[in-house]
Amino acid sequence: MSEIRGIYTLWLREVKKFLREKPRLINAICQPLLWLFIFGTGMRFSSGMPGINYQEFIFPGLIVQAMLFTAMFMGVSVIWDREFGFLKEILVSPISRTSVFLGKMLGTSTDVMIQGIIIFPFAYLIGIPVHIFMVLEALPLMILITIGLVCIGLTFASLMKSFEGFGLIQTFINLPMFFLSGALFPLANVPTWLQWASYVNPLTYGVDALRTVMMGDTWVQLFPMSLDIMVLLCFDIIMFVIGKTAFCRVE
C-alpha cells in the first residue's frame, strides 16, 4: 500500500511539473503547427504523392515525433533531479527502487500522452474527420509507443552523469528514430538500406499503426496491424527491463 502511495506521489509530481511549465506547453502546441502548416504545405505542393494529402500523411508522424522528443526530454529530467539533489530525497525514502522507477515512468508517460493528445485536435484543421472511434483506437497505440520511448529516456538519464550528453541523445537517438520511422516520407520507394534501417526502428511500426487508424483506406499498410502491435509490445517490455535495471543501479 505504501508503495502504491509512493508511486502515485512521484507520478503526481511529474505531471504537475509538466503542466506548470508554460513555455513548454506553448512549445508543445506551436511546434507541431509549424511542421504541419509550413513544412507540410511546402511538401504537399512540391513533392508529388499521388492520391495522398501530404499533411494528412505526416499528421500521425508528427504525433509520434512530438511524443518521441517529449519522452527523451522528460526522461532526462532524472539528471536535473540529480543535479538539484531532489533525487537523493526520493532514493533514501523507504519506497523501493522499482516503485520509484514505476512512478517516474508512469508520470513521464502521462506527460508524453498529454503532449500527443494536444496535437489531436489539429486534425480538424487539415480536414481529417476525427471521430470518437478513431481516438479510441489511436490512444492504446499511443500508450504502447509512449512506454518504450519513456524507458529509453530513463535509461539514458540513469547512465549519464551530467546534462552535457543531452546533445548526443538529440543527434544519435531523437533524429535517427524520427527520420527512420517513415514519419516524413513513405518507405515504399526508398533504397533497400534505408528501408531496412527503418524496419529495425520500433517507431516505424508505431507510425504505421497510427496511420492505419487515422488515414483509413488511403493508406496502404506496411505491416499487418497484429505485427505492428507485437513489435511495439516487445519494444515496451525490453526497454522497460533495461530501463529498470539501469535505474536501479544509480548510486
Binding site: K16, K17, R20, F84, G85, F86, K88, E89
Partner: peptide, 12 residues
C-alpha cells in the same frame, strides 16, 4: 535526513 547539499524541489 538533512543532506549537506540542497535537496528540495524548487519548482514546488
Amino acid at each position: 535526513i538533512v543532506f549537506q547539499d540542497p535537496s528540495v524541489d524548487t519548482d514546488m
